[in-house]
């Protein structure tokens, strides 16, 4: 497959300012979006009750609503889930009643309505648990950022680690913005996906950084600017291909994995696409803006001998 006989020669760094501007504007837009539209948090975070049932025959939602109304749950949100035989019932959190009894009561109300009803799942999350999850999720993200920043600073240099984490924050924000824009449900698994994205999306950045270091050693005459541009071009193909393979498996997960991993795969698909862009323009672009020097990355003499095989 000699699609690319030559290393491409795109002057990425010439566009880096445009890239940074576009990203800054997008970031502002996403922050506004998150502030005003917000995320569609699932019951993992908000608390509440969710019941999924499967009927033998097609069922009218009005009948289900009526049955629930008789049981005193007029406020329940009733909707089809995939097919007209699957029904999802949601109740928002209420502080006045004993929530744990609600799921039982809903089943009681439905049980008297139809026979042959198959309970698929019941989820009840108390408000205190949801609150904790939100706090823990925030902490997890913060520590993931700090940990990665420390590792990159240790392996490369602090300017690189700033660029890397900026790209990570950017990827996460863009993904959250996408989830907010399309009101994709954000549950515990989605949060796991976002954290996995934090770990995965900087693979690109690390690969580019690694190549920059290698080229800085071998190309002593070239300017930083040229070295970075060359490095990005050299790794571009690999970047595209590995994203393609990751997108392939994520698409498989999205199509066949079922509802419980839906938003997880959406978050990762979105994140992986954004990461391709941010690894070039943000992490590397920002590192240049911060003024990386050849001396920042040149290792001490003995290490040079070890690394160049």
């Amino acid at each position: 497959m000699r699609f690319f006989a030559q290393v491409p020669n795109i002057n990425f760094m010439a566009q880096r300012k445009t890239g940074l501007w576009v990203s800054s504007l997008l970031t502002v837009a996403v922050v506004l979006l998150l502030a005003f539209r917000g995320l569609n948090f699932g019951i993992d975070f908000t608390g509440g009750v969710l019941v999924e049932v499967h009927y033998q025959q097609t069922v009218e939602l009005d009948n289900v609503r009526e049955a629930l109304g008789k049981g005193g749950y007029e406020r329940a949100v009733v909707q089809y889930f995939g097919t007209s035989q699957d029904v999802l019932i949601r109740l928002p959190p209420a502080h006045d009643t004993d929530q744990s009894k609600v799921s039982t009561a809903i089943l009681d109300a439905l049980g008297s309505e139809a026979e042959g009803i198959d309970l698929r799942r019941v989820e009840f999350v108390g408000p205190q648990v949801g609150q904790e999850l939100t706090e823990k999720g925030g902490m997890a993200m913060l520590f993931a950022f700090l940990g990665i920043m420390a590792y990159i600073a240790f392996r490369f240099e602090w300017k690189f680690s700033v660029g890397c984490v900026a790209a990570l924050v950017h990827d996460v924000l863009m993904t959250l913005g996408f989830l907010s824009l399309f009101q994709v449900e954000f549950d515990l698994t989605t949060l796991g996906g976002i954290l996995a994205l934090i770990g995965y999306s900087n693979n690109e950045t690390v690969v580019i950084y690694d190549r920059v270091r290698e080229n800085l050693i071998s190309l002593r005459r070239a300017s930083i600017y040229e070295v970075v541009n060359l490095s990005i071009n050299q790794t571009l193909l690999r970047s595209i291909i590995t994203h393609l393979t990751t997108l392939l498996v994520l698409t498989a997960l999205f199509m066949l994995g079922g509802a419980s991993v839906h938003s997880f795969s959406v978050a990762l698909i979105c994140g992986v696409i954004v990461a391709t862009y941010s690894s070039i323009y943000i992490s590397t672009g920002l590192a240049i803006l911060l003024g990386i020097q050849r001396e920042d990355l040149l290792p001490p003499k003995e290490e040079t001998e070890k690394e160049v095989v």
Partner: peptide
């Protein structure tokens, strides 16, 4: 390069393990 990329991912998964609950 692979080791570097994998370590950064591992940092995130370790954090996920420490803060996550149950299925996560």
């Amino acid at each position: 390069t692979i080791a570097d990329a994998n370590v950064t991912t591992l940092v995130a998964t370790v954090v996920l393990f420490v803060f996550g609950s149950g299925p996560v």
